[in-house]
Simulated scan of single mutants.
Amino acid sequence: MGGHIIGYCAAALCMAVSGTIYGRWKGKKGNKELVFKALATSMAVILALEAAWNTDSPHRWLITAGLVLCMAADVLLELKFLCGVVAFGCAHICFLWALLCSSEIRLYTVAMTAAMYLIFLAAFAKCLPQLGALKVPAVIYPALLCGMAALAVTYGIQNQSFHAVTMAAGGICFVVSDFILARRYLMEKKERWYGIAVLVFYYSAVYLIAL
């Protein structure tokens, strides 16, 4: 157990350092800072891969696949935004698949999904007409995200293991991160704290999902 704690702490430290470098270099080094953005997420991939290798469970392998897609999406999002959105959508499909293998959908799962999705739609409905080709992904992606987060919470309630609880927390962090990102992107919020909050919640999300 001690070895696992050291590994968790080392991964968290590397993620924090890499994420900080990316945040400081963003927009100043061409695309070089994307290496550190992906490197930060790779710490979560390594943790998930170790767990998948040790347990050899479909749930863990699907989580690993989803995190690999997140790492790819980190880079794609800034090179070609739509490709990044699609990659993140595929990541959430992997997470959903993993959770469906390990938990059962309840009425409260559907209610949570609907509530979070309606909050997204209500917050950004006025911005949809101006999105053009991104309008359809902007409607579909939050549905996948909210469904994943609700099912992650369901998984946490039904299993109550360490991984189940961190998965639930990770799902919620993902929603918060993407909500702030959408607000920043669609409403052109330039305040520095928006960018910091997005990174903190996003890296917390992938780290917690990997545990």
Rank of each mutant, 00 (worst) to 15 (best):
K28W: 00
K28R: 15
K28M: 10
K28H: 15
K29R: 14
K29L: 12
K29Y: 11
K29G: 11
G30I: 03
G30H: 06
G30Y: 09
N31M: 08
N31W: 05
N31C: 04
K32W: 08
K32R: 13
K32S: 14
K32Q: 13
E33I: 00
E33R: 04
E33G: 04
E33C: 09
L34W: 02
L34G: 01
L34V: 00
L34S: 09
L34A: 03
L34M: 07
L34E: 11
V35D: 01
V35F: 14
V35R: 06
F36C: 06
F36K: 01
F36L: 09
F36E: 03
K37D: 04
K37R: 10
K37E: 02
A38F: 00
A38K: 00
L39T: 08
L39W: 08
L39H: 03
L39R: 05
A40D: 04
A40M: 08
A40W: 03
A40V: 05
A40H: 02
T41Q: 09
T41Y: 05
T41L: 10
T41R: 10
T41W: 07
S42M: 15
S42V: 13
S42D: 07
S42C: 15
M43Y: 06
A44G: 07
A44D: 03
A44N: 02
V45M: 05
V45G: 02
V45Y: 02
V45F: 11
I46P: 08
I46A: 15
I46G: 02
I46V: 15
L47R: 07
L47K: 08
L47S: 11
L47W: 09
A48V: 04
L49R: 07
L49M: 13
L49Q: 07
L49N: 08
L49F: 14
L49V: 10
E50S: 11
E50T: 09
A51F: 11
A51G: 09
A51L: 11
A51P: 04
A52K: 12
A52G: 12
A52Q: 05
W53R: 10
W53S: 10
W53D: 08
N54G: 03
N54T: 10
T55M: 01
T55I: 01
D56A: 13
D56L: 13
S57G: 14
S57F: 04
S57I: 07
S57Q: 12
S57T: 15
S57W: 06
S57M: 12
S57Y: 04
P58V: 05
P58D: 04
P58G: 06
P58K: 02
H59F: 15
H59Y: 15
H59N: 08
H59T: 10
H59K: 12
R60V: 09
R60D: 15
R60H: 15
R60G: 14
R60W: 11
R60I: 05
W61P: 04
W61T: 05
W61C: 06
W61L: 12
L62F: 13
L62Q: 05
L62M: 13
L62D: 03
I63D: 01
I63T: 06
I63C: 05
I63A: 01
I63L: 07
I63G: 03
T64S: 13
T64D: 01
T64R: 01
T64L: 09
A65Q: 00
A65D: 01
A65E: 00
A65L: 13
A65F: 12
A65N: 00
G66C: 02
G66T: 04
G66Y: 02
